[in-house]
Design a protein around this nucleic acid. Structure first.
Lengths: 181, 181
DNA sequence: CCAGTCTCTGACCGATCGGTCAGGCATGAT
DNA sequence: ATCATGCCTGACCGATCGGTCAGAGACTGG
């Protein structure tokens, strides 16, 4: 069996538990039990419970930022397609992280660990709506955005299967064939 | 100002706090402070914290059950339309309750208070998918189902505005005009 | 006036929370 | 042998959690 550092084990187990029971629903004791070490060991490797959360979210948040940056120079239609593909891909690679970020309550999302995430979500939402300011488009974008995350969380389908399906439904809902006559 | 019983006040404040901070993130102290009474008063009116939750969910759960029952005799296409309309309407009338039910983590949803909800969600999901067993349709149904709930939660738009928009996006995503050649 | 009921509360309980701390046990360089 | 360093732990801390309980106050019918 592969040799893994205690620190990485802690992150792995914490991601699992946070995604399953929520941040507040997971105690340091629970994580320690999952890792097979003492609670004090967690706090030797990490300054606090919040620090574990922050480190878990960090990678996903950075990639989300990169995606948003990649979208910026594109025109509305291209950004919309790239946003759908990129977001589905991102959320499939960060299932657990997505669960704990999106599963968190509104108030919870305003913790410092998530501070820089919110503007990125807004940007992504705008891209999903093809930069339209029409409230209908914006709401539709939000529905798809959050719907995709939620499905990925509690679905145990193969990511490869889900990928095409999710992109498909997002396209269908967001990209109107030839809008009017 | 209208005269309200302490009991109703407790339910009102609890719904607010649960929706905002989550069940685990809300303490009896918090609710008592919001109501303006002591924690002991909460436990005079309700046997436990769980009991408050159960009573909050009850009405929404019953109406969801009624909706699902109403769907059963219809054919696939009619059930799909009725499900969309009915669900959007339901979730707009029970915003806070929807927030705490859907915002809860997977494990949380398996508490006894929600036990009878899960099969109803499955039935609703099937209706959204026009009773198709195609995985694509099922996933699309789930995306829309959860997406709608999530949007309603943190949106402060007028319910009347949202209603048409949500029904519209759901139809667009789920009902395929003339599917194939 | 009294007894009974309803509503409410402060004081208290054991359990658990996140977090601290002094020290044990390796390993490796001097 | 000695010391330093990295990793880990049991014991402990104050705070807060959900929940209990005896009793205070208000209001009622007899």
């Amino acid at each position: 069996m592969v040799r893994v550092s205690t620190r990485d084990e802690i992150l792995r187990v914490a991601a699992e538990q946070f995604a399953h029971f929520g941040y507040k629903g997971t105690s340091l004791q629970d994580i320690a039990a999952g890792v097979g070490c003492s609670k004090a060991t967690l706090l030797y490797h990490f300054a606090s419970k919040d620090t574990i959360l922050a480190e878990l979210v960090e990678a996903a948040a950075r990639e989300l930022g990169e995606l948003v940056a990649r979208l910026e120079p594109l025109d509305a239609a291209a950004a919309q397609e790239a946003a759908i593909d990129g977001f589905v891909d991102l959320v499939l690679r960060y299932r657990q992280e997505a669960a704990l970020i999106y599963g968190g309550m509104p108030q919870f999302l305003q913790e410092p660990a998530f501070a820089d995430l919110l503007p990125h979500f807004d940007a992504l939402c705008a891209a999903f709506a093809a930069r339209s300011t029409d409230p209908d488009e914006c709401v539709a974008a939000k529905v798809l955005l959050s719907g995709i995350v939620t499905v990925v969380i509690d679905e145990d389908l193969e990511p490869t299967d889900l990928r095409a399906t999710l992109v498909g439904v997002a396209r269908r809902a967001l990209i109107h064939p030839h809008d009017k006559d």
